[in-house]
Design a protein around this nucleic acid. Structure first.
Length: 274
DNA sequence: CTAACTCCCTGATAGC
DNA sequence: TGCTATCAGGGAGTTA
């Protein structure tokens, strides 16, 4: 589900509900997510602590505690994070509840349990263990045509998979990869090493434009994504190629093609994207 | 080293 | 209707 825009929308939506609040208790339903829920560390470092800030790195939501600890939440494919009045009945797949000091609860629901909850004692420890192998954020200066040209040296990997690899750049998932490539008029199957500097410039610009527009629209809701307040996104209304296999290209009226790359669906217009 | 495949898990949907 | 196969927004580990 959530790529960078969705996590960012959730971060912004939850911030006013969480910053300054105290976490009174963490209730764990017991099922393991991608990793076991670190119950002892939650108890030790998060319970009875106050939240100072919410930030984001890649697709990780970071909840910073006044004691310096960081609660890290990754939503996987189907994770949802929402605020509810504490007396709201639980539903299927509610795995974790964070009881706040205002009779509200932050609830983590995850059908497929591909998400993860992690706790670190400090930002340094988190960065060391979690972020060491991650590439730059798409909105960082470092993410540039020159950087991509360098990273793509000797890489025969298709540019779509290259853009989705977190060591290249973080936050681009399967929906936005197809949309970005269409916006830049670059074929997803072209080997990364063959992309020209001019095309990398177009791809950098397209990445920022698409991700910013998606954030502005509240993210993309295909099946079940909702933000921290339960609201869906609307960027699906602006999708140009994703999910449009067999339909006409909005630019040339040719057919949008669906292919599979490294096990994931890719959509593109073979006439507009070269 | 690279890059594709496999698996984690549940649920929706398509096809027979 | 009911079964089976396929697919799904992520990512870590394995394989060739």
């Amino acid at each position: 589900m959530p790529e960078l825009p969705e996590v960012e929308v959730i971060r912004r939506g939850l911030t006013p509900h969480l910053v300054g609040r105290k976490i009174l208790a963490v209730v764990n339903a017991g099922r393991k997510l991608r990793l076991p829920v670190p119950k002892a560390r939650l108890q030790e470092l998060v319970v009875n602590g106050s939240i100072t800030e919410l930030s984001r790195r890649a697709k990780y939501l970071l909840i910073h505690m006044a004691n310096g600890a960081v609660l890290v939440i990754h939503l996987g494919m189907t994770g949802r994070l929402r605020i509810f009045p504490a007396n709201t009945p639980l539903v299927r797949h509610d795995h974790l509840r964070f009881r706040l000091d205002n009779d509200q609860e932050l609830r983590y629901n995850d059908t497929r349990r591909f998400g993860a909850i992690l706790v670190f004692g400090s930002q340094q420890a988190m960065a060391q263990e979690l972020f060491a192998a991650l590439g730059p954020e798409p909105f960082d200066q470092e993410f540039s045509a020159d950087y991509l040209l360098d990273m793509a040296r000797a890489r025969k990997q298709p540019v779509k998979n290259f853009l989705m690899a977190s060591r290249t750049v973080v936050g681009i998932g399967n929906i936005y990869a197809s949309e970005i490539l269409f916006a830049a008029r670059v074929s997803p199957i072209k080997p990364a090493v063959k992309i020209t500097k001019k095309s990398w410039q177009n791809l950098v610009a397209a990445t920022r434009k698409i991700l910013a527009a998606a954030i502005e629209s509240g993210g993309t809701t295909i099946a079940d994504y909702v933000d921290g307040n339960g609201r869906p996104g609307y960027f699906q209304l602006q999708l140009q190629v994703y999910g449009r296999g067999g339909e006409p290209c909005r630019l040339c009226q040719g057919r949008i093609t669906k292919i599979k790359q490294a096990g994931r669906a890719t959509y593109y217009c073979p006439r507009c994207q070269r």
